[in-house]
Write a protein that binds this DNA or RNA. Structure first.
Lengths: 161, 161
DNA sequence: ATTCTTGCAAAGCCTTTGCAACTGC
DNA sequence: GCAGTTGCAAAGGCTTTGCAAGAAT
């Protein structure tokens, strides 16, 4: 687990601020409030469908359409990051969390976060070499996590018996 | 442009070999032959829909379903790589081409390839640190390419007049 | 009051699939 | 001739959207 970054505002008030500061001011609704609180009440990666399900399970009534629409705003507001992990998307907290990259276990779906300063440097360097104005990068390592790997080994041993 | 790798077989014969060597031998059909030849007759990135359109434009009659089915086999055979560039997928030649990563222009969609040995090392290193058995990685730099950047600058200058 | 947001259901986009006809081996 | 492949059209996920009703400022 990475160390959270110190932030001065709650995600909720940061979002209000974002909405109010739009060229066309947008409204902060109760559906949005419920969503922001729900999302920031736990730190995990999730996708839109999962979130819909979790929200329903928690007894909150927010329509699928609103979930999608609000997710887009939260990403735009800098509260969430949208990751493309292989075929699937995942959202994660951006606000209050340091920049990092991911290891993605193809076996159990687990997402492991890591930070690496060399990567950041390399990214700048490569962009510059190609006279490219960079706006961000994605680095994902695919493979099998220690636990799944262990399980696989154990199974293999058993299969041989 | 990267320097092609020396290969001993044509993509077509490599594909035949792959098909024949499956647990359940698969057949090499004329639709597949047409597709392989078409795809390897030019070196570019493409997605499935684009390919369907280009194939139709070239006067070849291959159904959408077959295009999708054959693309999957070509990836499995190691002839093509499937990239996830942001929201969209792209296919590129894998066979006869060195490993590399990508800069993706958000403005014109251009894909620039590059090679960087540090990245490969870093990838192994990070995986090891997390006792992760890596099977591959994705590194994509997003931003604006030199041309689009130039165009944007020029436009900005003109707007000021 | 005005204008943005919501929920619903419908439509969209890309991709996969069931099935009958067809074709490599 | 058998088993894998094709084309079609239909179905599948996931996501977006048009619209009327409802809510925030």
């Amino acid at each position: 687990m990475l160390t959270p970054v110190q932030v001065s505002q709650s995600p909720e008030s940061k979002f209000r601020e974002y909405l109010a500061s739009r060229p066309k001011p947008q409204r902060f609704t109760s559906a949005q409030q419920k969503m922001v609180r729900f999302i920031f009440s736990s730190h995990q990666h999730f996708d839109a469908e999962q979130l819909c399900a979790d929200i329903a399970r928690a007894g909150l009534k927010i329509s699928r359409a609103t979930v999608y629409r609000t997710l887009a705003k939260l990403v735009d507001a800098g509260l969430l990051r949208r990751l493309q992990l292989g075929e699937r998307v995942a959202y994660e907290h951006d606000y209050g969390y340091p920049h990092h990259d991911h290891l993605h276990c193809q076996s159990c779906g687990k997402i492991i976060e890591f930070q690496n300063p060399t990567l950041e440097r390399l990214y700048q360097e490569v962009a510059q070499q190609h006279r490219f104005l960079p706006s961000g990068y994605t680095f994902v390592i695919r493979g099998t996590c220690a636990e799944c790997n262990q399980a696989r080994m154990t199974k293999r041993r058993l299969d041989l018996v």
